[in-house]
Design a protein around this nucleic acid. Structure first.
Lengths: 192, 192
DNA sequence: TTGAAGTTAGTGAGTATTCACCTTTGCCTC
DNA sequence: GAGGCAAAGGTGAATACTCACTAACTTCAA
């Protein structure tokens, strides 16, 4: 991705988040970039390509953050908190990418976009499950519910929190409130 | 709402769920109804009105199901299961309305639609919180986490399950898998 | 001097909505 | 009961507008 492509992807995320799926048009994107509509097509072949690039960039970004976190050994509870704090910090600095987490609106638009969304979700899940499972093996996490089911609950809780954050126009602290969500989750699943 | 209006609202839900926000056009709606585009306007003033009617109808439907469930006294765990089974049964019979639960895609389209979505979400939450709180007072539910926070986790978990159900084109049993989600949740929050 | 990155000025298709008009239905009056 | 008549619910055609995308032209730095 060139610098210009990065800028366009960022502008697309911003539009998507601020004005919804309907707001992401080539016209609006061009206005945001301060140049003509046709100039967009110097950098991307289609609108679809822009969205796929956006989702893949986001996926890569989150993956890197995951890698950085799990490279350090920590107790489960702390590991989970550090991981999600890293995610929340990213979205705090890039709220316009928040849309991709609850990208329901994008779905069904095209198969390629759908697949990009699934890659993103699957990537997060397949990272989280071993983490939780290891916590269970070490006896830190309850084994009364399977690791997959615990991850479902965690992801659902976080997704809903992100949804609220966007609904309320990002005007509460996502890092702090996200921490709180992780707190309540660990209270329920971490053995004392 | 007249019968015709009901039919249109149902067709709109179907389109929305099957083809996404972009698929809900007056043209497609008219095709679904097997009559002309202009005929739609005999029954609704605008497309916006159709969406608001759809969300309000759904809100009313879920409210009624709630009333029916809580009118009978039951242990908390059972009450929660019966309540959500009722909800899942509704969506099982009306999968085209599933879209409204994760109606992110509709948001930002118009203020009136936004408000209708918030009414729906708020209504569910404000019903669930007292139920959980009562469970806490009776000592059936853990008090280590506030009722509001527990409801957030429950709603997030269920929302994500609905999202998966739609993603996978409704081809698994939402009643059964929904039951399982409630099971895992009660395992975590109900005191033994 | 070539190629990348911008421009203007279009394209056809699709959008929600409105228009004048037609048909069916049920009701009121003679 | 026949005749008029308005309302309800349908039609196709046209509205003004937006959509993603393209062709041809310019600018400018390597």
């Amino acid at each position: 991705m060139t610098d210009r492509q990065q800028e366009i992807v960022a502008a697309a995320g911003k539009l998507l988040t601020m004005e919804g799926v309907g707001g992401l048009t080539i016209k609006n994107l061009a206005r945001e970039m301060q140049f003509s509509e046709s100039a967009i097509y110097r950098h991307f072949d289609s609108k679809e390509d822009i969205l796929v690039a956006m989702l893949d960039y986001l996926s890569e970004e989150l993956e890197q953050r995951y890698e950085r976190v799990v490279s350090v050994q920590r107790p489960f509870e702390e590991q989970l908190r550090v991981l999600f704090r890293s995610v929340f910090t990213f979205f705090d600095g890039n709220p316009h990418f928040a849309v991709a987490v609850f990208s329901d609106g994008l779905m069904e638009a095209s198969d390629r976009i759908n697949q990009a969304i699934f890659r993103l979700i699957h990537r997060m899940r397949s990272r989280l499950v071993p983490l939780v499972r290891e916590g269970q093996h070490r006896g830190a996490v309850t084994s009364s519910v399977s690791a997959e089911d615990l991850v479902h609950i965690i992801m659902g809780t976080i997704r809903l929190q992100m949804f609220r954050w966007r609904s309320e126009k990002f005007d509460f602290d996502i890092i702090q409130s996200g921490d709180h969500r992780i707190d309540t989750l660990t209270t329920l699943i971490v053995k004392k």
